[in-house]
Design a protein around this nucleic acid. Structure first.
Lengths: 122, 122
DNA sequence: GACATATATTCCTATATGGGAATATATTTC
DNA sequence: GAAATATATTCCCATATAGGAATATATGTC
């Protein structure tokens, strides 16, 4: 089997950096294809292709205005990603605090060494 | 150009569902390869290959115990993903509340229609 | 050292990709 | 309807898969 299609789900669609850029670009306001081309300095066909992928997985919404296609990020489609990664959130804070604890432990040990050394001098 | 390598960053590594399963499996406790094979019902070479990818992007830690390799999820490597998606969080709550507002608006309209209709009857 | 067990690697193949170039389609304007 | 503009699609190709099968490597046990 080959790799899953980029259009199979938001996880795959978002793996491409350009597509993440496009989502950021369209997060707060509608933009047409030409504006994205200028903003991200990509070729127009490239942008259209990326938008197609994003649209297929529901990450962007489109509406036509004359000959302009107005795209906008559909942030809700990113929720599964945020929630899945959120599942690991407490783990990494635990890991960080454990590292912090170990660092503090080391400091205490150093202090102890120093004190005993000084005691030895007297 | 082709698609970016799965080993190029956590976004790409995590696009594969099996690898997400493996990360979940290793979230809370170390497990060796054989245990993952059994838990997820995958072929052993497949698991080893996925672990290689996950290790390359820092999503798992390994340590050897005799002939067993003990793997564990390194949750911190998922932070960039969580933070990037988190950037869109307020947007989707905004979108939801706007939908909610519209729904409420519709209810009000219905109520109004009903009242005027009843008034018409009198 | 021979053997068993645990894991990693290699070779294979069908499949999908992203970009470049060229072209097609749709819409407005005149 | 012809020309201009905006966007989408098609064709091409080098590249990287994921899984299956077979094999290699490493470690422990006797």
């Amino acid at each position: 089997m080959a790799r899953a299609a980029t259009t199979s789900d938001p996880f795959n669609a978002v793996a491409e950096p350009r597509r993440r850029q496009i989502l950021e670009c369209l997060a707060n306001e509608e933009r047409d294809v030409g504006q994205i081309v200028i903003a991200l300095r990509l070729e127009q066909p490239s942008v259209s292709k990326h938008l197609k992928v994003l649209h297929k997985v529901g990450l962007v919404r489109v509406r036509r205005n004359g000959r302009h296609m107005l795209y906008k990020t559909n942030a809700q489609a990113l929720r599964p990603l945020h929630e899945w990664t959120g599942f690991f959130e407490k783990l990494w804070t635990d890991q960080l605090s454990r590292i912090k604890d170990r660092a503090e432990q080391k400091e205490l040990e150093k202090l102890y060494m120093k004190e005993t050394k000084e005691k030895g001098k007297e």
